[in-house]
Design a binder for these strands. Structure first.
Lengths: 160, 160
DNA sequence: GGACATTAATTTGTATGCAAATGAAATTGG
DNA sequence: CCAATTTCATTTGCATACAAATTAATGTCC
């Protein structure tokens, strides 16, 4: 019985083993970590979008939830805590502010800083959607056993 | 010995266990799978950008490599194979075509279809950067042992 | 063959995500 | 105290990513 059924079979053009240069034989897109990461993230965002009732994106939700813990805090530190650069967090905060979920005000002690706080409605939005957010995480990890879920989280943390 | 050392400790406001509604105590952003996935993907893209010499993005590279296997193929099927929707793959292909890496032509058998092929330069770009692409995957997985790498790939595949 | 549904591609609009350049304010070193 | 540096925020430009609407061509069913 051939135990190599999952091997890539023999390449069309044989390459001398010692001097084999990186050939297409050795690179399958669907075996690369980057391709998996992009797809897994896409699936999660898709689940998030379909389950989150109010028109919130993953990053908007992240910013809201983190702001609840950190407030009052500057735009920059909220960005760092939510893994968004300054340009990205600015756009997210602007849209949340326009919807009345976040308050922005200049810092009286440091005129460069923009101080952010949750509005009442912002806090209410978090409260209303917390159980949905938990459901989204559960649904994303549904294909895995409890042990696998823990393992995946640990492995992802190591490569972050 | 307390085996619950990783528990979230006692919440500030005690909630009756039976009727506990989803509270902020139970939801830490930095414990959610979506946050990890977004960050891990960001780190990979960052590694890709810094190591890939020619001005190629992760999705452009994915489209090129997959097209080499599939060519000639329609824009839609290339999109499906690289996990990009029609709007996204169109933008990617347009930019690759403008750079002369991909050829586009209407399908003589089905006038709706756009048939894609690699140009000579497109094939050369793949050849020139294959070893870098492998290096990028290695670098992304560097914090993990060989066993952990395999495990991570399997777990990600399960949730894709 | 012709109404109807389906498929492929395009277009528009919104939202990340990041690099790079700019401006303004605070900090630091001499 | 002043020049150089650093920090915080903004702006611009480019590139995914996806929903929704549109157009054109193909397929299907009666």
């Amino acid at each position: 019985m051939d135990t190599r059924s999952k091997d890539k079979s023999f390449p069309d053009k044989t390459v001398a083993p010692g001097q084999a240069k990186a050939g297409a034989d050795q690179y399958a897109l669907s075996e690369q970590i980057g391709f998996f990461l992009r797809q897994a993230n896409q699936r999660h965002v898709s689940i998030f979008t379909s389950l989150m009732a109010e028109k919130l994106t993953t990053t908007q939700w992240a910013a809201l939830v983190k702001l609840k813990d950190l407030q009052p805090c500057s735009q920059g530190s909220l960005g760092r805590e939510t893994a968004m650069d300054m340009a990205t967090i600015k756009g997210v905060v602007d849209r949340l502010a326009k919807r009345g979920l976040v308050n922005t005000a200049p810092d009286s002690a440091d005129a460069r800083r923009l101080v952010l706080t949750l509005t009442e409605e912002g806090a209410a939005v978090i409260e209303r959607n917390l159980s949905i957010a938990l459901e989204i995480s559960r649904e994303t990890l549904k294909p895995l056993t409890a042990a696998e879920r823990m393992m995946l989280m640990e492995l992802l943390q190591k490569i972050c």
